[in-house]
Nucleic acid binder design. Structure first.
Lengths: 202, 202
DNA sequence: ACAGCCATGTAACTTGTTACATGATTTT
DNA sequence: AAAATCATGTAACAAGTTACATGGCTGT
């Protein structure tokens, strides 16, 4: 949900045509978010539909220029002024995967963790190699790129730490795998003494 | 892309009907991945379309049971046996947002960072509060839930560290914002001396 | 009777992603 | 002439999300 906003933020600097828009996006993210050209035109039409951008003139070379609307400018300000929406609940694939692996009978959780750990460490190595591959962030482009790489490094490091932490926890307190509940839940309203403890996780 | 796999992994334990499937998923993730009931039926049909699950009998109470196929079992083994795909390039909304904010003229990057930091810390507080809210992970369900919460905590902590790190970096080495390139890129093949340094970021 | 859960499903929609078609221009 | 790039677009698809319709069962 940030491609739309990103393109809009660039459009806020001045009218662009599609291809140029991608170039600007690439330049500012160092290609860390591979953006297909076709996607630009999709997104632009969606922005137009939502009243955030509008199709402008075509110059003599055939470039179709797009500009931002007032509503679009407001959307950019809103985007930059508010934090990234912290999704209540994870959409973290790895966390869910391990939680499932830990509670399903017959799954080698430790094996899953080890495999993941190896892959994450390898990924981390690649990231660090890319980071120090003779590049000194002297230009603004490279600095922006290295910020994104740093973010990936930090996230991956956290992933590894969590994997280790989880492995230790599971070693100390082995999980009894949960089989499928054999008896089906009773129909009708739940008994009244269970309705109060719902908000705990929220 | 893990809902499909998750449901399939549960189906691997035995035939289920839709509603039961969601209950099992919820139980094993502690509701940290809010899964709409309707989504179950969508997903089941997609699994069927892909030959990973198949519609089975309906019992006398009207429950439509689903079971896993051989291909589905293979898919589960594959899923659990291989690491989560490390997307080349981030899809990290926050990283991209900051990279853009840092390279666009007229954006208060520090403000963006501070706002985000406050929000992330608040989120972290909620997570820790939820974690220690009288819950001791004695049951397998609660342990699985607490693993997911730990994952969120680790990720959010990494986020805050990265924000601090980024703020310091930008303070030491201010970014000259990049205006849109005024001259349009030349058409035709790029000059030969730039073709070699593409693979560096990959 | 009514509220509320159990249970199945349908339809629409959002964002992201990929493949393809088309043609102009420019360098080798 | 061939290859590569610039440039615009269309179509289809994948995955997730939400809203809604429908009906049965059960406890208050």
């Amino acid at each position: 949900m940030s491609v739309k906003q990103s393109l809009l933020a660039i459009l806020d600097q001045g009218a662009c045509y599609g291809y140029q828009l991608r170039a600007e996006f690439d330049r500012r993210t160092g290609g860390t978010w591979p953006l297909n050209v076709g996607q630009i035109y999709n997104t632009l039409e969606r922005l137009e539909r939502d009243g955030l951008a509008e199709r402008g003139e075509t110059d003599d070379e055939g470039h179709v220029f797009w500009s931002i609307t007032d509503a679009g400018r407001a959307a950019v300000a809103q985007w930059l002024g508010s934090p990234v929406p912290s999704t209540k609940g994870t959409r973290d694939e790895l966390a869910i995967k391990l939680a499932l692996a830990a509670t399903l009978p017959g799954v080698d959780v430790t094996g899953v963790i080890q495999t993941q750990r190896r892959a994450s460490l390898a990924h981390l190595g690649e990231l660090n190699r890319a980071k120090y591959a003779g590049k000194h962030p002297d230009s603004a482009e490279e600095l922006a790129w290295s910020l994104v790489v740093d973010s990936m490094i930090f996230q991956t490091e956290a992933e590894v730490r969590w994997l280790d932490h989880t492995e230790q926890r599971l070693a100390m307190q082995p999980v009894t795998p949960l089989p499928l509940v054999s008896e089906r839940p009773a129909r009708g309203r739940a008994s009244a003494d269970r309705t109060a403890d719902e908000g705990a996780t929220a």
